[in-house]
Nucleic acid binder design. Sequence first.
DNA 1: CGCGGTTTTGAAAGCGCTTTCAGATAGCCA
DNA 2: TGGCTATCTGAAAGCGCTTTCAAAACCGCG
Lengths: 349, 349
Amino acid sequence: MLDLPDDILEPLGRSPVARDVARRAGVSTATVSRVLNGSAGVRADKREAVMRAAQDLGFVANGAARALSTRRFMAVGAVVPNIENEAFVRVLSSVQDRLRQADYTLIAANAGYDLDDELREATFLLERGIDGLMLVGDIHHPDLHARIARSGIPMVQTFSLSREHPCVGFDNAGSAARAANYLMDLGHRRIGVISGLRKDNDRGGARVTGIAQALAARGLRLAPEHDIEISYGIGGGRDGFRQMLAGGSPPSAIICGTDQIAFGAMIEARARGLSVPGDLSVIGHNDSDFSPFLDPPLTTIRIHSAEIGHAAGDHLIARIQGRPVVRLTEIDAELILRASTAPPRHGDG
Amino acid sequence: MLDLPDDILEPLGRSPVARDVARRAGVSTATVSRVLNGSAGVRADKREAVMRAAQDLGFVANGAARALSTRRFMAVGAVVPNIENEAFVRVLSSVQDRLRQADYTLIAANAGYDLDDELREATFLLERGIDGLMLVGDIHHPDLHARIARSGIPMVQTFSLSREHPCVGFDNAGSAARAANYLMDLGHRRIGVISGLRKDNDRGGARVTGIAQALAARGLRLAPEHDIEISYGIGGGRDGFRQMLAGGSPPSAIICGTDQIAFGAMIEARARGLSVPGDLSVIGHNDSDFSPFLDPPLTTIRIHSAEIGHAAGDHLIARIQGRPVVRLTEIDAELILRASTAPPRHGDG
DNA sequence: CGCGGTTTTGAAAGCGCTTTCAGATAGCCA
DNA sequence: TGGCTATCTGAAAGCGCTTTCAAAACCGCG
């Protein structure tokens, strides 16, 4: 009877496991593991045998088994309010960039500006065994931090600054105030705000607060009819500005929560026969791709989403690897001056 | 000596495992597992004891262990050419929608229109142990399908139709042809195309082919100087149209690979003193958020990304669960008529 | 109260990897 | 060549679940 070795070249019915590689290379699974994880202390000939065997078999280590054994899932989670929002997509993509370099995977989830949903998504991710978590903002479900703490994994908040938790963000109030000051320096005195929904959204809230304070500092105030809250999008911007005009006293300048909103407001202004920036100065937020191409090009507050993402990714990786990190990273937002802002036509703002 | 039970309420140093729950509830881990997975055949009292114990302990099952044991990772991967592209984000978000309902997680990766990168990202995902994979398009690295096959997981391609592989998509050539026919029906005869880079991108290629064929069917041809390939974005669109004009014979209508490109082309046209649609009709692709708000509102081919995503998600889940599926799902693209198209001014197209 | 047939239950065997620990080898010098 | 380190290597013990299998508990009925 023919005495065939049991490591025939035929494909195994199942996908190959470390045991198969070991057998084929004539070593133990321990050695296979050592070789495949690049740990030192394996003689060159064995190392090569293992490499070749793994190659031949098309061996791919089972991630779950590895995760179970190492207690590392090699993935971090991110929960953002709206996965279709440009700014968040950019952050996700830049976080992923960094994670990828450290061989980590990003798992993103959508919370839709709802604290309960955010909690649910985060829990889902936590159950998966993620090694780190990225959140947006500083307002969360009361139970969320407890759960994160219990899981023992590092967490970092983004887009706003926090004194409670590790974060990478910028001063929403401060940068919005800067925009307001810029408008006032131009001579505007009747300044309006159109923001996205502010419930459970500290960023939006902080921006409006910052503007109100900047106005107050110069003896002006943010009139209630100039403080409009709408749902996001270009349509929202149109509605918002229409609503503001309905208030009776048209502003000479507005600051919008996103460039989409600003775009919508500009459209509505034009439809009303108002010229931008002649009759109305407009400032947006985020510096979207289309903003430089609008007519007129939009003045906007550029949020360095990519930097936020990189910093957040680095922060998480560092903590996962036990390296020290700074608790708070501030990424400056920048006022990009373009042609949608000008001194008020009538001098009185 | 006090005989304390070993399941004190004090927090354990480590996070609780099934064993802890079992001890606390006075059952075996088998029963804990049965209860937590909702399998029948556990007496009500024990079931409740387990539930309470799990609750009290804040027990969260270890995903890796579960995955190892069940051979199900409960995650599917998706590799898209550009994670920041609106259409792909929408697909990802709608795939995730469906996955989430089946308790699956989506892990998305970016391939940047490069076959090698796509292979690398897909391999990375495969190593993680994903249970299914979504790709975009029908052109891939020669090794990719082999690797997927070896892993034994279901795969679905999106955005284009394929006769080789399971897919959910639409007829890129056909819908672009429809746009061309519409323009010709309006009387246009000099029709141009500005597409994104077509290397390794079957969608872009198919669209141009479709247009060329539609023209040919009516005895017209796509002049080389009217076939422009640029990198994506508004800036790309401007450059592309400028380049086309430099060809010497301006077209009376153009079809663009995305609405961003169309937007850019319209800006350039206006800058050249051409009116849209008076001197130039413009058609885009994707129906972006801003398209109805452009001046004039943009005629575009709407790709039902959300439907594609839903169908792709359902397809993968079905196959993972061993249910039968249709191999090819065609989602119709739709020509949305708005004001950027009109009969050519001079009658001769 | 005993019996056959259901339910319920727990012990134990994996799942496929990493890692410890002790034994086997190799290397070196006297 | 022998003895002593310094390297390598493999057996085996987990990691924390799920799931099989056989035993235990329960049930209704005669």
